[in-house]
Design a protein around this nucleic acid. Sequence first.
DNA 1: GGTGACTGCAACTCATGGGTTGCACATCGA
DNA 2: TCGATGTGCAACCCATGAGTTGCAGTCACC
Lengths: 113, 113
Amino acid sequence: MSTPDLPTMCAALGDPTRWEILTRLGEGAMSASALARVLPVSRQAIGKHLEVLREVGLVESQQRGREVVYLALGAQLGALARQLDRIGRSWESRLLRIKELAERPDHDRPSGP
Amino acid sequence: MSTPDLPTMCAALGDPTRWEILTRLGEGAMSASALARVLPVSRQAIGKHLEVLREVGLVESQQRGREVVYLALGAQLGALARQLDRIGRSWESRLLRIKELAERPDHDRPSGP
DNA sequence: GGTGACTGCAACTCATGGGTTGCACATCGA
DNA sequence: TCGATGTGCAACCCATGAGTTGCAGTCACC
């Protein structure tokens, strides 16, 4: 499947309705019709959202009898979390270096790392 | 400011141009004009993106001389990462429970290994 | 003091995406 | 077998957002 890139992944998570869907699917597998019964949008809209979520690996579909049920997968979310954490830390550490440099008492500038 | 909700935060991160901007600002503080010089979009477009990023706490602005420079903040990104990780883990653990339950052999359900 | 560079605001275009309705087809159950 | 339920596909509406151009106001610097 290969992990989708960060913007795509985040865009998939950038819609409130999709979070509603994900929250329900995190509690238990459901079909598109079942979701449409509890959410204030049509089954077709749900279907489109599920397709988006499936493309980025956040949900998985299973044929169960005549209906197709979906369930939320935590793996991709965990992978995304790790990426974001790594990036955030790098920004923070850079910020810290800048601050240290700025607060250094006086002259004494090292000519290079 | 208080942390914005998940969909809003993810939506802010759901645009490729904004990631371009964030990447640059992660390497060093820059002004909107400076960003517009290295990215293939106008300064005004950059400005809008920066406003979005500022609203969710991903960048910070500083008046530096006559220009306004922006820099990337890792704190919000880290907070988001922790939230996503927590949610992902809960989904995973639930999935594991379901699987265990399904594989339990003691019911008269001969679902083979 | 004039000139160039940076910022801020406003109006506008245009594509994308979220949502809808409608219909055709499959499948389960009484 | 027939009705009810679930899915798939297509066309369509429309609001939002990404991007643009244009102009006015400031500030630094020669």
